[in-house]
Design a protein around this nucleic acid. Structure first.
Length: 246
DNA sequence: CCCTGATTCGC
DNA sequence: GCGAATCAGG
């Protein structure tokens, strides 16, 4: 399998939706979890909670400095950390579960922002004094009076702009948390919940009871002890004819 | 043990 | 660029 645009798209979407690499790999099919992770990194999709994360910038030095005979092991690093370690705005609004994503009608590509280069920087001189000018940032002013984003400056979108192109909801961004048919595998419970055809039909998705297609819980439903004939309940009312002898 | 993501490195 | 092997935390 190769990384077609479509598959990459699915990868991106699912990755950003918080799906695990395994889930993505399952959904895509033909690739391993590692492949997904590797690809994700190459796409620079990283930055998300990882169980193994070197959060300490100093720590990495120790790891990396193994090779070069790193000279003086300074006696004891003085704990001065004058660095104003400014937390990089964590306000990342969690990508809402795709479920809630409004299905926007196909957008006609007609009305596009025209790339007017009105070089009239002076025109809108008093354009809101930037509240926080750590350093003078060169910006140009766009047609509507909006500030163009300076190169290298990528922060503003307080409201995460919706992706321009809607990805095919292929196997991808499933309703978060619900296990779709495409995500079934040998080790997750295939007990159906709801009814096929209904919008929220999905599968249990629990970890399977080893050796069975269902989780322990649903095995309880699926398999019941066979009682001796004599002890069985009197034949209950059969709604629709009952099981056929085969 | 199972899961996770990160990294490395030969291809 | 790709992904198996490996690492390492939960």
């Amino acid at each position: 399998m190769s990384w077609t645009d479509e598959r990459i798209d699915t990868l991106k979407t699912m990755w950003e939706a918080g799906q695990t690499a395994s889930q993505i790999a399952e959904a895509l099919g033909g690739v391993s979890r590692n492949a997904v992770i590797g690809k994700a990194h190459r796409l620079e999709l990283q930055a998300r909670p990882s169980p193994v994360k070197p959060n300490d910038p100093d720590a990495k030095i120790a790891a990396a400095a193994v090779e070069p005979a790193a000279a003086e092991p300074t006696v004891e690093p003085i704990e001065v950390a004058p660095e104003p370690v400014v937390a990089p705005v964590v306000a990342a609004p969690a990508p809402a579960p795709v479920k809630a994503a409004p299905v926007a009608p196909p957008v006609a590509e007609s009305v596009e922002d025209d790339e007017d280069e009105d070089e009239d920087d002076a025109v809108a001189a008093p354009v809101v004094a930037t509240p926080r000018p750590p350093q003078p940032i060169m910006r140009s002013v766009g047609p509507g009076g909006f500030l163009r984003q300076a190169p290298g400056e990528q922060q503003p979108p307080s409201t995460p702009a919706p992706p321009r192109r809607l990805v095919p909801a292929k196997p991808s961004a499933e309703m978060a948390g619900k296990t779709s048919l495409l995500e079934l595998n040998d080790r997750i419970c295939k007990w159906p919940l709801g009814h096929p055809g209904e919008p929220d039909f999905h599968f249990c998705g629990e970890k399977v009871n080893p050796g069975f297609p269902y989780c322990v819980d649903h095995c309880g439903h699926a398999y019941q002890a066979q009682l001796p004939r004599r002890d069985r309940r009197p034949t209950p009312p059969l709604p629709f004819g009952g099981p056929r002898a085969r």
